[in-house]
Computed example of a mutant assay.
Amino acid sequence: MAYGSALAVLADPTRRQVFERLRAGPRPVKLIAAGLPVSRPAVSQHLKVLKDAGLVEEHSEGVRRIYSLRREGLLELRAWLDSFWDDALEAFKLEAERSAPARKTR
């Protein structure tokens, strides 16, 4: 149930802001933290939680750590959310078929 982990991790508003800042591309902690109401060490802790949940990955460039979204980490969450849409469309189809007037056959 990886989607449950993703939901729990992203429930924190600050962590969600950190995650959303990576939408534009890979960033070092300094840029991610800029303008947030928490310290850089706090941002690093949020990034660790996101990384442990499989939502973020990191690599080193010299002495800097660069963080980026791990899109595969969202696939299970997306599949789970899409299943609700699939269920709704199937229910709509069944209701439309049920309520359509019976066709006369010749």
Rank of each mutant, 00 (worst) to 15 (best):
A2H: 12
K51S: 14
S99P: 00
A11Q: 14
E57H: 06
R40Q: 14
D52C: 00
L50Q: 02
M1G: 15
S83Y: 00
P101L: 03
V63T: 14
D12G: 10
A88V: 08
V43R: 06
P26V: 03
A24S: 15
W80F: 14
T14E: 08
A100I: 00
A2P: 13
R106W: 09
I66K: 01
Q45E: 10
S5R: 15
A91G: 02
A88R: 11
A24P: 00
G25S: 01
L31M: 09
V49R: 14
A100M: 05
S5F: 08
G54W: 01
L77V: 08
R78Y: 12
M1K: 14
R27E: 13
D82K: 07
A102E: 12
D52N: 11
A11K: 12
A6N: 06
R40C: 01
D87R: 13
Y3G: 03
A11Y: 11
Y67M: 00
L75M: 12
V29S: 14
L77P: 06
A88K: 05
V56Q: 01
K48E: 09
L31D: 15
V56W: 03
H46G: 06
A96W: 10
A11C: 10
L75H: 13
K104V: 10
K30F: 06
P41M: 07
K48F: 05
L89N: 05
L74V: 04
G62L: 04
K93H: 12
L89W: 05
G35S: 07
S5Y: 09
R21H: 07
L36K: 05
Q45G: 13
E76H: 14
K104H: 08
V38D: 04
V56I: 12
R21Q: 04
R70S: 12
A100T: 03
K48V: 05
A6M: 04
A42N: 05
A33Y: 01
A88T: 06
G35I: 01
E72A: 13
K48S: 14
G25C: 01
T14H: 09
K93T: 11
F84V: 02
W85H: 08
F84G: 13
Q17T: 13
A79Q: 12
S5L: 15
S44Q: 13
V29R: 10
R16S: 09
G54L: 02
F19H: 05
V43C: 08
V9Q: 04
R78Q: 09
Q17I: 09
P37S: 12
E95W: 13
A24T: 15
I66L: 11
P37D: 13
S60Q: 14
S83V: 01
A6G: 08
K48Y: 06
L55F: 10
F19R: 01
